[in-house]
């Protein structure tokens, strides 16, 4: 399914590219035979559509993987990677950058830092409050801090120059991959790859974490350490994804759900399924976004428009109910 989505994504666009062209170019770049494709096609694949396709896949995979980890960690299938305020923090960072008319790279950097900072504050608050259910404190802390950051974004929108900055802010908040280049891709790969490692390594421990702190501790898991590591990994991944794509909702909530319906809740199967499914889903949505209308549709809008009916359908007809 992912392979099909990749072929379709490469071929759709203002300039036609066939899967044959793609295979030919890949072979040539790997040193197998000579490039049998036109230079224009090469540019389209290598510089424009390639980075965009790969970025869409990485963002989708990253959001889905952190969603899967969070849903297990917080023992709630309704949790998304935004729960601890990473998206709100990234949004405030990016909006601040746009407001200060910083260059694109700085805006992305501020979004990334904002996301990490927001979750850092939530973690610090949660560890300062003792004697209560730590998961509850984390979630409530995330909601409160997220709301505070959201009001910061609203204030900046209100103050922003309505002809120049406000559209840019709105555009960023709706999410898009239209401006993605090879540099973005290069910036996105390391954090996603680094963050995936602990999630893969801790896959068996994550199953035990879904039983709650007491049972997990009684089964021999150092829950506090595992929780911090998983939150750090998921936050790193989400912040990196969001700083490139803007706010893209639904993927981190919906895709882990679908994956769980397909292969069950055991993380050893859930994680790879969510990663592949997330990559395919966001790639398909992004391909739709740039091909449906004469103007590109915002990614965040499309994921919600597609995600809502799917979610409702799951709610009504899902064989296993919530889980």
């Amino acid at each position: 399914m992912l392979v099909a989505a990749v072929c379709v994504a490469f071929s759709i666009g203002a300039y036609p590219v066939t899967p044959g062209d793609l295979a030919g170019l890949l072979a040539a770049k790997l040193g197998l035979g000579s490039a049998a494709v036109a230079p224009a096609v090469e540019t389209v694949i290598w510089d424009i559509r390639g980075p965009r396709v790969l970025t869409a896949m990485l963002v989708g995979a990253g959001l889905a993987a952190s969603g899967a980890a969070y849903q297990g960690l917080f023992r709630n299938p309704l949790v998304s990677p935004d729960i601890l305020g990473v998206s709100s923090g990234a949004a405030l960072g990016a909006v601040l950058g746009i407001f200060a008319s910083l260059p694109v790279l700085a805006i992305q950097g501020m979004a990334f830092a904002g996301g990490l900072l927001a979750v850092g504050v939530v973690l610090a608050v949660a560890s300062a409050i003792r004697g209560r259910d730590p998961v509850l404190v984390l979630v409530l802390g995330g909601v409160v801090i997220g709301a505070l950051l959201g009001s910061g974004v609203a204030l900046l929108k209100y103050l922003a120059d309505p002809y120049n900055q406000l559209p840019a802010i709105t555009f960023w908040l709706l999410g898009s991959l239209s401006a993605v280049n090879r540099g973005d891709l290069a910036a996105l790969v390391p954090p996603v790859a680094v963050a995936l490692i602990p999630l893969v390594l801790l896959r068996w421990r994550l199953d035990v974490m879904t039983l709650g702190d007491e049972e997990a501790t009684a089964l021999g898991v150092p829950v506090r350490v595992v929780r911090i590591v998983v939150i750090a990994a998921a936050t790193l991944m989400t912040a990196a994804a969001v700083s490139v794509s803007g706010i893209v909702g639904w993927v981190g909530l919906l895709v882990p759900h679908l994956a769980r319906l397909m292969v069950g809740p055991a993380f050893v199967r859930l994680l790879p399924t969510a990663v592949l499914l997330g990559a395919a889903y966001l790639l398909a949505v992004d391909t739709l976004a740039r091909s449906l209308g004469p103007v590109e549709l915002p990614l965040g809008v499309l994921t919600a428009v597609i995600g809502t009916p799917v979610f409702l359908w799951l709610l009504a007809f899902g064989k296993r109910g919530w889980s």
Binding site: G72, D207, T210, E214, A218, L219, R260, G264
Partner: peptide
């Protein structure tokens, strides 16, 4: 430890 009510919220199999 056998808790009063297992807190499992996800559809693991009994074997898992």
């Amino acid at each position: 430890y056998v808790p009063q009510a297992g807190a499992g919220q996800f559809p693991f199999t009994v074997r898992e």
